[in-house]
Design a protein around this nucleic acid. Structure first.
Lengths: 145, 145
DNA sequence: TGGAAATAGTTTCCCGGTTGACAATTTTGA
DNA sequence: TCAAAATTGTCAACCGGGAAACTATTTCCA
């Protein structure tokens, strides 16, 4: 028979695995929930970015903020535009499309955001507020490499 | 112009978003690294599960442990079998395939595991050991719903 | 100033994963 | 006991996202 490699995983590795697992689960749940509106988590992300921006922003900028490829942003904006949540504007730099939220898009955000935030709160309920804060800080340290 | 919805994100939501973001980044890096062996993170996961199991286990069981669909486990095992890392065995319950690690698969794990663990340690280096432990515990609370 | 390099957006192709249908088999319970 | 329900593995179709190639445009700098 095969001889198995015995390993006692380090704390670092255990934490890493759990981090990936929790993250994966949250993405799945999130996508599952947004599908009720025929959208992806990422579609909604675009809407929130636009809602948070004071001015229309370029697709490349959107891609940078959400760590998505330019190619994919094109597709995301395509759908959102077809849904009339978003509009592409010409820009003086004729390479770029500026994207802005339409009134309809803003209305959609307004109607759905409370529910979305509610889901987040629900998801984090097992942690006290202090623990949530601690988690936030620790994850922050991992983000800046 | 559109009226934007103003929201100050809750601590819970900020932590959740960061959690998803960090998780996503880790998955990407992980996949990128495993690709040097022509494998996916998930392929390796299967090997580790088999390495950790004392006996051959069914594909359905593998899928359960790694939160992957049965259909996908079929494909994962297909490749691993073709690579000779894994073997399918008949089972008295004739619906199931038992899967076991071959000597070659065990050898592969033995050779690569130190590197994989090293990557994990590297990734978590921004945190002290205590912080890693704290992170592990907090994430644990999120896992049990 | 003019040509090389950089940037933006799109399109095509590919890849990994899921869903749903299916056949084979086993378990359940009336 | 035996038909209905559940389980397992597979396959085909689909879907979201990434990489590379391409065009159009702008910036850089020798």
């Amino acid at each position: 028979m095969t001889k198995k490699v015995k390993i006692t995983p380090s704390v670092a590795e255990q934490a890493l695995i759990r981090l990936m697992r929790v993250g994966d689960r949250l993405w799945r749940k999130s996508d599952e929930r947004f599908s009720q509106w025929g959208l992806t988590d990422n579609h909604y992300n675009v809407l929130r970015i636009l809602n948070g921006a004071s001015d229309p922003i370029s697709q490349a900028e959107i891609g940078r903020k959400m760590l998505s490829s330019r190619a994919n942003v094109t597709k995301l904006v395509d759908l959102l535009e077809q849904r009339k949540f978003v509009k592409r504007l010409a820009c003086s730099d004729r390479r770029v499309n500026l994207v802005e939220l339409t009134d309809e898009g803003a209305k959609f955000i307004e109607e759905t955001l409370p529910m979305v935030i509610g889901m987040a709160n629900e998801e984090m309920k097992p942690l006290t507020r202090d623990e949530q804060k601690t988690l936030f800080v620790l994850l922050g340290k991992l983000l800046e490499e």
